[in-house]
Design a protein around this nucleic acid. Sequence first.
DNA 1: TTGAAAGCGCTAACAC
DNA 2: GTGTTAGCGCTTTCAA
Lengths: 319, 319
Amino acid sequence: LEDVARAAGVSRATASRALLEAGPASTPARARVRAVAERMRFRPDPAARALAGGPGTRIVIAVLETSPAELECGYIQQVAGAAAAVVDRHDVGVALRWAPVDGPGLLAGLATDRSVHGVILVNTTYPVLDSLPARLRGRVVSIGVGSDAVPSIDVDNLAGATAVLHHLCATRARIAMIEPPAWMPCALPRCQAYRQVMTEAGRPLRMLPGGFCMSDGRAGAVEVMRRWPDTDAIFAANDDAAFGAMSALREMGVGVPADVAVAGFDDVPAAALTYPGLTTASHPVGRVAAAAARALLDPAGGVAAQIRLPSELVLRESA
Amino acid sequence: LEDVARAAGVSRATASRALLEAGPASTPARARVRAVAERMRFRPDPAARALAGGPGTRIVIAVLETSPAELECGYIQQVAGAAAAVVDRHDVGVALRWAPVDGPGLLAGLATDRSVHGVILVNTTYPVLDSLPARLRGRVVSIGVGSDAVPSIDVDNLAGATAVLHHLCATRARIAMIEPPAWMPCALPRCQAYRQVMTEAGRPLRMLPGGFCMSDGRAGAVEVMRRWPDTDAIFAANDDAAFGAMSALREMGVGVPADVAVAGFDDVPAAALTYPGLTTASHPVGRVAAAAARALLDPAGGVAAQIRLPSELVLRESA
DNA sequence: TTGAAAGCGCTAACAC
DNA sequence: GTGTTAGCGCTTTCAA
């Protein structure tokens, strides 16, 4: 910085202000500093910046889940990987932290940690969003639901699920849904899509509490066939649950898709490998996470309040 | 630190030395400082530490690959996720960086970056290992092959592959292997196991250059059946290649496992979902990555030169 | 609008 | 073995 300032003919302080786009600085000086910095390929030292009261050196990905073991699921790993790839160029790192679903003070602790540059909330809930400490304002983005103070980025769950359900409706009459975990507000649009499409099409509503694991899908499928034996399609809240449903149906001697069609959501790699291949909606997790990391990193900070990345119908054999 | 030192009745410098376990410090003082620090839940500020010449605040995971797109594969994501979870407690972050397979100066650049705490090399090669800059000594671990200066952590490829091949040998006579990418030295033990087991069992050697993608497995299987039509088992270098082989065999009208048994390596989640389920060897990627991160973080630094985590045979229907 | 100066919390020479 | 002192590279009051 010293060198940049000298080369631009200003003091360190002015250079700092120019680069930060904060505080007073004349437009010409500002431009000169930026040009010199560019030319010298100047990269501010994040450690020094953190020490001097700037943003920290880590982005923590705080994952709300029922158990820390959930950090090992493919979805979270993908978020971590994509974010880690994005932050590298900015000399920042990411850390992955489990937060109990109803644990208090998660954000409070993060707010006082000077080494924290920003926070990516995953699977967050409204109570957590509402407890946002002032010091964290502008340094938090949510993958999932957001609030006035917290911009959110997610796949377009509503559109993706709607597409799947329209496809199901075209060939099937009685469609059941295995719901996502009830506490997870970001998954609610998938239910909403179900209610909406079924209602509009005049189909019966057959919803069952479920979850995001194969075991949830398995249990759900068994219960569906017990309660409504004439069901001819199952929409699972995600691919894993759909895999569970398919395997349970097979064990019950129910043909997929001959007797019952099955569809999921996410298009995980395994969806292309099962037999039959799983019809589902794509979920660009990596792009969502990368966008979240960039929102935290970009100086402009022009984060739209809400970004919904498109989800596309992926047709395979199961439905 | 100031407070800790005062409470322990020593100067900041002594406290620092005691906590760092570096430099001279009397045993009693050392113990006192540690006790006080423990009680006060003192956590040194990583930014300050980095600024003052200590280790940086980021661990960069440098992945040698042929293309940056490879960073998005499940294996790398898992490494990133597991490492990110481990470093969180240490107020450090991880960053993911792609490095061209034969790109020069990768480590040189990292060595001069003060914000880098340490480096986890993934899929590294011997030339890279040999070019280790002195300043990075003791701050690099490799997931894969290592060297005198770089401790390495990996799954026990040799034992895992050997177990799979012994299993194959028990019921099959002519076993072909689809090899891993040739430039990736960490995957070589899988080939070595093949040669060894085949030779000991007096079986023909049928090796074909391959890779780690489904397309490699697909091409490999086609070529195997063309060159050696009486082959009755295929060992693919990893699960993805095995999936490709299975799908190619199915398309060729070859029954799996009836006509040809197929086995892979890694036990990715999809291996349990294909039809037939894939016989493979487990690969505790998360544990490997966590161990690598811990090796970099732990103050003791007592990293064994080489750690090989066990791989277990996972029997399913494909072989 | 700008510059000078005072730290941020820690480590590492250096003298005691 | 221990304390004193001087920074690490930046941001941010405060005067000018």
